[in-house]
Design a protein around this nucleic acid. Structure first.
Length: 737
DNA sequence: TGGTAGAGGCTTTTT
DNA sequence: GCCTCTACCA
């Protein structure tokens, strides 16, 4: 064996790479080089064991991760990436269903329904089933319920059987109706892309054996976030060779709300006999300070396998804690901090700002615009969710699949063409009765509609047929362009929307995306394009080479790393979020999310919280997050206060000297901790580090330090006005805010 | 049929 | 605070 191949791997990593046959579970801590292990392992299989690339199947969490893995492999072993299957569960599911879906009644031109399409379909079902509709709070709630059932391998029939109450039964009825309607529309929703593969493999053993034989080696990244249905898919696909290699970290499991089961990792050894377990605990990413903080935080969780990350790297800088007055000053502070990092030699692309909820990006964005720093936001307003983009795509979808009623409904109404709701519903009813598509009804003369609307329908059909011809003969970008042109969509936007200009740009952007797609695609057809579009996540578009600052949710940051990471909004109610308050497991998941955030940072970590935050229009006071109290004191820098009160008028010179000087003070005096100081005991006290308090004489401030206990309890507070004072808690006229 | 005004709900996270 | 849905009117 050529050992020089592995000279840069540590012993454990090498074990993982070379454990060729049988089930292997790699517990890989954050920054322990798991991506490298995955790619090295594949390269090793190809080179040393003469495995053909087409015998390898690898699951990644995002399309971006898949792309990157392929690129790395292509560099190592040219030509290999082409025939290898590397992708997300959803993308792989589509691939399988396009080939073998007909075995379970799926036509090749099926539509993929995203969350919004599903919702539209469910709304119509609820309208038709008014009685059953009482069982659900909202269409959304129903969608989530159905999704959870699908991801838990619960079919409508099982749901019906298990129904304990009237309510459950009605939900099961609605679920059954939804499944039926999807089938009628020849559409699959997101969950179906996996669930129906599992169905295929259970119904058609030939298909299962074919795939499971072909894929001698199955690899799964981010294994802690697989749900039951994905697990079933993995199980089928590895059922012939049993060479299943999974990599995950139970401490980074953050998708239980999507049905992910951390038990898959915890019980893997019991599920698969003779499993080899390998633990990667050496971290190559973060400073010792950051790692220390991460280890302390995650130690508060009970439901974990337990591991201790270590590094032989530098201690590095302390973690900066910033307490701001409100979200505006938080944003200003963050931007100041970013500028300071840049002044110290970091590039904007090495910095990320992370938050719990998408809504938090707004305040940050406002300040970033003023500061003219280039930035990219991942996730808040997704390109493919914009109205104008959806309109065009609705046209495309229904052109590929005439049975796609949800998108036909949308297409027929944009632009407005004199066919109203009533007419459409008549057509739909007719189609339903006859068991054909609405397009077919139109082709037969649109029987139930008469008069002016009938003429409009005939015109619409003519337009549809004309575009359908284009679809049959042209590549995706040409079709999209003709759709825009022949529907008169640009004019429609310009006349109906005051902000039409930006929307037109988005329409042009779809065309150019289609061109970009067609250039590199095996199948440059419209269908291929729609498939790609349906499966892209926003994070797939993240470009770390553009020199921009990146903003995104903590969930989106999974798998990424930056020199400097700022986690904002560390307040009770926001992070951890309110919704998790009455569930210990949910709180632990929030903590894991925080852990993920911390471990994204290589060198610098900044944490911020505010005293006041606007929530749905209302101002709400928040206490600093309990997670801040879980950070070891010796890792922390002193809390910072914005040196300037922020108003729009005063923001011009926000980024000048005054503010930064205050922030740059030396903090040695704060880091001398009394060794007996046990931060865990602070949990029981009413004052915690980072907490906002009000003192009758000095006003509002932040608790910097808590010492002693009982009547010797001393609290050090930094006041918003700039001073710092120490009090005996029992005498001070002070209380938490 | 289509536009608009006002009410009501909502935001935790996403393939 | 913003978005979506509904009811009502032109």
């Amino acid at each position: 064996m050529n050992t020089s191949l592995f000279s840069e791997l540590n012993d454990r990593q090498r074990d993982a790479v070379t454990a060729v046959n049988g089930p292997v579970l790699v517990i890989a801590g954050a920054g322990s080089g798991k991506t490298r292990v995955l790619t090295e392992r594949i390269a090793y299989l190809l080179r040393e064991h003469h495995v053909s690339p087409r015998e390898i199947l690898a699951f990644t969490f995002t399309n971006k991760a898949a792309r990157e893995m392929k690129e790395r492999l292509e560099r190592k072993t040219p030509g290999a990436a082409e025939t290898m299957w590397v992708g997300t569960f959803h993308a792989t599911g589509v691939r399988i269903l396009r080939r073998h879906g007909d075995k379970i009644g799926i036509q090749r031109n099926f539509s993929i329904y995203d969350a919004d399409d599903s919702l539209n379909l469910l709304k119509r079902i609820l309208q038709r089933n008014a009685v059953a509709a009482y069982a659900v709070r909202s269409p959304r709630a129903l969608r989530d319920k159905i999704s959870r059932m699908k991801n838990g391998l619960v079919t409508p029939a099982i749901a019906q059987q298990q129904a304990a109450h009237d309510v459950d039964e009605r939900i099961a009825t609605l679920y059954a109706e939804y499944v039926k309607e999807l089938e009628r529309a020849n559409a699959l929703d997101f969950d179906d892309l996996i669930a129906r593969v599992v169905e295929l493999f259970s119904v058609c053993d030939e298909a299962r054996v074919q795939y499971a034989t072909r894929f001698r080696y199955v690899l799964v990244d981010e294994f802690q976030d697989t749900n039951a249905i994905q697990m079933a898919m993995i199980d089928h696909l590895s059922s012939v060779h049993h060479n299943l290699f999974v990599v995950g970290d139970d401490d980074q499991s953050i998708y239980s709300w999507r049905g992910a089961r951390v038990e898959h990792i915890l019980d893997f050894e019991d599920l698969y006999e003779n499993t080899r377990v390998i633990r990667l605990e050496q971290n190559y990413r973060s400073t010792r300070t950051i790692l220390n903080a991460a280890n302390h935080v995650i130690a508060h969780n009970e439901g974990r396998k337990g591991k201790h990350l270590w590094t032989d790297g530098d201690v590095g800088e302390k973690i900066q804690l910033i307490a701001a007055h409100d979200e505006e000053s938080e944003a200003v502070y963050v931007v100041q901090c970013v500028k300071r990092m840049c002044a110290r030699g970091l590039s904007l692309k090495d910095i990320a700002i992370l938050y719990r909820t998408n809504a938090q990006s707004r305040a940050l964005e406002d300040v970033l615009v003023m500061s003219s720093l280039p930035y990219q936001i991942i996730g808040s307003v997704r390109f493919y969710e914009r109205m104008e983009v959806r309109d065009i795509l609705a046209w495309c979808k229904v052109l590929v699949n005439p049975n796609d009623t949800v998108n036909l409904r949308r297409a027929i109404h944009v632009p407005r063409r004199g066919i109203g709701k009533t007419s459409f519903e008549k057509l739909e009813e007719e189609a339903y009765q006859r068991g054909v598509s609405v397009i077919d009804v139109l082709r037969d003369g649109g029987a139930p509609v008469a008069g002016a609307p009938a003429r409009r329908c005939a015109e619409f059909l003519k337009l549809y047929e004309r575009l359908a011809t284009v679809v049959a003969n042209e590549v995706a970008p040409v079709v999209v362009e003709r759709v825009v042109e022949l529907t008169g969509y640009v004019k429609y936007l310009e006349t109906n929307y005051p902000d039409g200009e930006g929307r037109v740009e988005n329409v042009e952007e779809i065309i150019s995306k289609a061109s970009g797609f067609a250039e590199g695609a095996d199948d440059p057809s419209l269908r291929g394009f729609l498939e790609e579009v349906a499966l892209v996540a926003d994070v797939d578009n993240l470009d770390l080479e553009t020199g921009q600052l990146t903003l995104m949710t903590l969930h989106n940051a999974k798998g990424l790393e930056f020199d400097c990471v700022v986690v904002t909004g560390l307040e009770e109610g926001l992070f951890p979020h309110f919704n998790s308050f009455n569930d210990q497991r949910a709180i632990e998941e929030e903590r894991r999310l925080f852990y993920v955030g911390i471990t994204r940072a290589r060198k610098h970590l900044v944490l911020t919280c505010v005293g006041m935050r606007r929530r749905q229009g209302q101002f709400e006071g928040g206490m600093p997050s309990r997670f801040l109290g879980e950070l070891p004191d010796e890792c922390l820098d002193r809390p910072q206060q914005p040196s300037v009160e922020v108003g729009v008028s005063g923001s011009r010179d926000l980024f000048g000297g005054a503010g930064t000087r205050v922030m740059r003070g030396t903090h040695d005096e704060y880091s001398q901790e009394s060794p007996g100081d046990d931060q865990f005991s602070q949990e029981e006290l009413s004052y915690r580090v980072g907490m906002r308090v009000r003192h009758d004489n000095f006003g509002a401030g932040v608790v910097r330090k808590v010492e002693g206990a009982g009547d010797q309890l001393r609290i050090t507070v930094i006041f918003d006005l700039g001073s710092e004072r120490k009090f005996l808690a029992q005498y001070a006229p002070m209380h938490p805010m």
